[in-house]
Every structure is written in structure tokens, then in C-alpha cells.
């Protein structure tokens, strides 16, 4: 069979990224311009600043990626683009570039949902085995999805309020950790013990999550200890928070795997980089004889390789868009 090369473009938040992936599984090159340093000054991503950076960097990352892959766009089979969800001003920049490349080089344009991209990041490690449960954990999402085939998504449950990554960043902020706080909280928690009592969120029969109560509990605890003039042990608080948050995610995931009698679990999204979550999922899967796939750290955060990988399977399924394709800030996984 002829090799398929997909050039993917991702610009849904604060990374301008371009990647070329062969046959959905082999990453040939990726070029990403990250804006973390810029947004750190503001304690979070500023949408207008993100958009301004994307337009500066978009042609540079495309050129750099092709150079790294030692390829020309003429050699590429199709162009895959994140159409949503995400920051609309950011999405638009990648979209215009992708549509224009598709037109100039007469290459098919393949629309890719950002979360599908996160899920297919796992294909860069090993081919997906169906049926599977995908646990998507990121700054904007906490979802359990059942897949019986490529691009066949059934959402089993999701967060009713804050996404897990959002909760991590907010808790980290209360504890005085600079943005992005999630990874720093993860690191700090290793120096502590889970000595503080925190409520287990939404311990019920659904596949849904809720993290705003847990977030408030941490904020209140922090505040109360301060009022009493007691020094809070930040490492212990981080460890206590992590334990409860991770337990909630792992128990709902385990329940979904058991209820549907599924033996494959894949993890996706930025919070998949969290070390405690990785450990807990690994233990749970070992105990229950579940095949677990977690992408390496570089594929957990936003990147275009995952878009190009998802783009390959979408391309094979005949998914195409015309030049009227538009970006969407919110859109259901498809």
C-alpha cells in the first residue's frame, strides 16, 4: 500500500504546531512554538495575546517542520487541521493557513476535532485496539469515551463543572504556585503526605466527574488554617489534593472498563502527564489485567503530531472539508 503522509496543523490554544506523520503512526517531524513563557506573566492564557503570537509564528513552524522532515508540501498526501474546540481567535489562524495550503498545493483538507487528536496521540505509540475506553484529562476536558472503531466515539460521562486540569491550576494558584501550576503541584505533592481530609467528589454510579467542590474545599482549608495562624504544609496539601482527585478519576475509569467489559484503556490530554495519575492508572490496570496506553509527555500536551495522526484515520474514512471550513470554539467530539 502507498504510504500516506499527513501534514497536521494545531493552533487551538497557546501552541502553534505543525507536524508530518506517516501512516498515522510514525512522526517524521514536529515544530511547535510554545507561548508558555509569555502567558506566565498573566497567570493564564490571554486569548488575544495567543492569537497575536499564532499569526507571527504560523508560516515559520510550517517551514521548520518541512525542513526537519526533509520534505516538500508536494510530497504530502493531505492537510489535517484542528477546527475546534478551542480559543476562536487562535483556531482561526491555523485554519486560514491550512485552507490556503490545501488550495495552493491541491491537497485534500481533513478536519480534526481537538479531542480526537488527543486520543489519537496514542497511535503514535501503538495502534489503537478496539473496543477501548479513552480517558481524556486536560485543562478543558475530563471525559470518559467508549470507542468500538476508528472515529466511533460514545461519551459515557464527563465533568459537571471544572475540568481536572483547570482544577489543578486553580488549586496551585491558591497555594502560590506560578502558572502553569498543575505540573508544579504534581512535583510538590511527592514531598508530602496526604494528611489533610478532603471530600471525595461525586462518588456515585455515574461516569461523571465534579471538581469544583474539591477545589472549594482546598481553598477553604487553606483560608481556615491561615485564620488560625497555622502554617499550612503545602506539600501535604498537594499530596492530599492529588490523592482525592486521582482516586476519583481512577475509580470512575475502572467502573467504565468493568461495566462495558473492556480491556483497553488509553489516556489522553495534558493531565496525562501527571505522575501520580499515571502511577494510579498503571496499578489499577495491572490489577485488572487491562492493557493501558499513555502517550509520552511530548504527545500529552497540545501538538500537531496528534492532529496529523487522527487526520490519517479521518482521511482513510473519507473525511474531507471544502474551503468554507470554519473554526468552532465549542463542538461535540466527532
Amino acid at each position: 500500500m502507498k504510504d500516506v503522509y499527513i501534514l497536521g496543523i494545531e493552533s487551538s490554544c497557546d501552541e502553534t504546531s505543525c507536524s508530518i506523520v506517516k501512516n498515522g503512526t510514525v512522526e517524521l517531524a514536529t515544530s511547535t512554538s510554545s507561548q508558555i513563557d509569555i502567558h506566565e506573566n498573566f497567570g493564564g492564557v490571554v486569548p488575544e495575546i495567543a492569537s497575536r503570537e499564532h499569526v507571527k509564528n504560523i508560516t515559520l513552524v510550517i517551514e521548520d517542520c518541512l525542513k526537519k522532515a526533509n520534505m516538500k508540501i508536494e510530497d504530502v498526501t493531505a492537510i489535517a487541521i484542528t477546527y475546534g474546540p478551542g480559543l476562536i481567535g487562535s483556531l482561526l489562524v491555523g485554519m486560514q493557513a491550512a485552507k490556503t495550503l490545501s488550495y495552493i498545493y491541491n491537497k485534500p483538507l481533513v478536519p480534526v476535532h481537538h479531542i480526537a487528536g488527543h486520543i489519537y496521540a496514542n497511535s503514535l505509540v501503538e495502534e489503537l485496539k478496539f473496543p477501548l475506553i479513552a480517558l481524556v484529562v486536560s485543562g478543558g476536558h475530563t471525559e470518559l469515551i467508549k470507542m468500538t472503531d476508528h472515529f466511533n466515539f460514545e461519551k459515557l460521562g464527563g465533568t459537571l463543572d471544572d475540568a481536572i486540569g483547570e482544577c489543578y491550576d486553580k488549586v496551585a494558584r491558591v497555594m502560590g504556585l506560578p502558572y502553569p501550576g498543575g505540573p508544579k503541584l504534581d512535583k510538590l505533592s511527592k514531598e508530602g503526605k496526604p494528611t489533610y481530609k478532603l471530600p471525595i467528589p461525586l462518588n456515585d454510579d455515574s461516569y461523571d466527574f465534579s471538581f469544583s467542590g474539591l477545589k472549594s474545599a482546598v481553598i477553604n482549608l487553606n483560608h481556615n488554617e491561615e485564620q488560625k495562624g497555622k502554617e499550612i504544609n503545602k506539600a501535604d496539601l498537594a499530596a492530599s489534593f492529588q490523592k482525592v482527585a486521582v482516586t476519583s478519576i481512577v475509580s470512575k475509569t475502572k467502573k467504565a472498563l468493568k461495566d462495558y467489559n473492556i480491556n483497553n484503556l488509553i489516556v489522553a490530554g495534558g493531565v496525562a502527564a501527571n505522575s501520580i495519575l499515571r502511577e494510579a492508572l498503571t496499578d489499577m490496570c495491572n490489577e485488572n489485567n487491562i492493557h493501558l496506553s499513555i502517550p509520552p509527555l511530548k504527545y500529552c500536551t497540545d501538538n500537531a503530531a496528534m492532529i496529523a495522526s487522527a487526520g490519517y484515520y479521518a482521511y482513510k474514512l473519507g473525511r474531507r472539508a471544502d474551503y468554507h471550513l470554519n473554526s468552532l470554539s465549542t463542538t461535540a467530539l466527532n
Binding site: E48, S51, R52, H54, V55, I58, T59, I62, E63, I73, I88, G89, L92, V93, Q96, A97, T100, L101, I104, Y105
Partner: peptide, 19 residues
């Protein structure tokens, strides 16, 4: 319009870079 400007510039940059 910030968004508007970026749309035209991205199209222009991509065409010009490609050609």
C-alpha cells in the same frame, strides 16, 4: 478588527510563503 486583520494576513503570508 484584530481577528479580521489576522485572517487576511494569514492567507497572504501562506500564499506568499508557498510561492
Amino acid at each position: 478588527s484584530f481577528t479580521g486583520i489576522r485572517i487576511g494576513i494569514t492567507i497572504a503570508k501562506t500564499i506568499a510563503w508557498a510561492l
